[in-house]
Amino acid sequence: MSETKSLNQTLAEFQANRAKTMDPSALKINVQQRQLLIDTADRSGFVKAGDKVDAFTLKEVGGAELSLRQLLATGPLVLVFFRFEGCPACNIALSYYNTHLAAAVKELGATLVAVSPQVPERLVGIKERHDLDFLVATDFGNDLARKFGILYSYDEPSRQAALAKGTPIGDVTGTGTWELPMPATIVIDQTSTARFADVSPDWLVRTEPDNVIEALRLIGERAAA
């Protein structure tokens, strides 16, 4: 029986295969944008374990309002920030979480929510495509991502490439801006305290499920002590 590939192994293989067929100029822009984010991200501003999380409200793609209070009513909360519905790496990551994380989160009494700034009517496709067994919700105006310090904007080459294709990201997401969240996973306990926070400036690097599961188990042990 073959060993299951990690999420980041899966993403690395995806990028290696895409690089063989992708237009070299487009590949260069993609690689340089990711490297710029790695080099310049203000990590001191990222949400961190121990931070108190202020009240917020998201909108689930089915229309329901999701407040922090509601989401924490029955147990801890896992927030997974992703860029947008058509992002290839995001599709890989959320599908992987559906297979390798969603059930464990439920078993540990927690709630999993995938979060993007994209408007609900455009975001629903990713949930339906992968039959995701967890909530998918909109962070309008990137309000929560901004509080968590995880936003970035397209650099100039990326903007010009998007404009040349007629697909500025603000039109794709429905936000009208060039801002997107960096991939991030935040685990929040029922005291509204972040107990685990992992932010990746490189959107081809994501949080592995085992790290989330371990964070939830520690929360459970702390509550039982």
Rank of each mutant, 00 (worst) to 15 (best):
M1I: 14
S6F: 00
S6V: 07
L11R: 01
F14S: 12
F14R: 09
Q15S: 10
N17G: 09
A19E: 13
K20M: 11
T21V: 11
T21D: 07
P24W: 05
S25L: 06
A26R: 09
L27M: 13
Q35D: 13
L36Y: 11
I38E: 05
D39V: 01
D39P: 10
D42K: 13
D42M: 09
R43M: 13
S44E: 15
D51Q: 13
D54I: 13
A55W: 10
A55Y: 10
T57Q: 10
L58M: 06
A64D: 14
E65S: 14
E65R: 11
R69K: 14
L72E: 05
L72N: 05
G75P: 04
P76K: 06
V80F: 11
F82T: 06
F82Y: 14
A89I: 03
I92C: 00
S95I: 08
S95K: 11
Y97R: 00
N98F: 07
T99M: 02
L101R: 05
A104H: 08
E107F: 02
G109N: 07
G109V: 06
V113Y: 03
A114I: 05
A114F: 05
P117R: 03
P120M: 07
G125D: 07
G125R: 05
I126V: 15
K127Y: 03
R129H: 15
H130I: 07
H130N: 12
L132I: 07
L135Q: 03
L135I: 12
V136M: 15
F140R: 11
G141W: 00
N142Q: 13
R146L: 11
R146M: 06
R146K: 10
K147Y: 06
G149F: 04
I150G: 03
S153L: 12
S153Q: 15
R159G: 08
A162V: 05
L163D: 02
K165C: 08
K165G: 01
T167W: 02
P168E: 03
I169C: 10
G170Y: 02
T175S: 11
P181R: 01
P183A: 04
I188N: 08
I188D: 04
Q190G: 02
A194Y: 00
F196E: 01
D198M: 13
V199S: 02
S200F: 12
S200A: 08
W203G: 03
L204N: 13
V205I: 10
R206K: 08
E208W: 00
P209L: 02
P209G: 07
V212S: 08
I213K: 01
E214I: 11
A215V: 06
A215D: 04
A215Y: 03
A224H: 13
A224W: 01
A225Y: 13
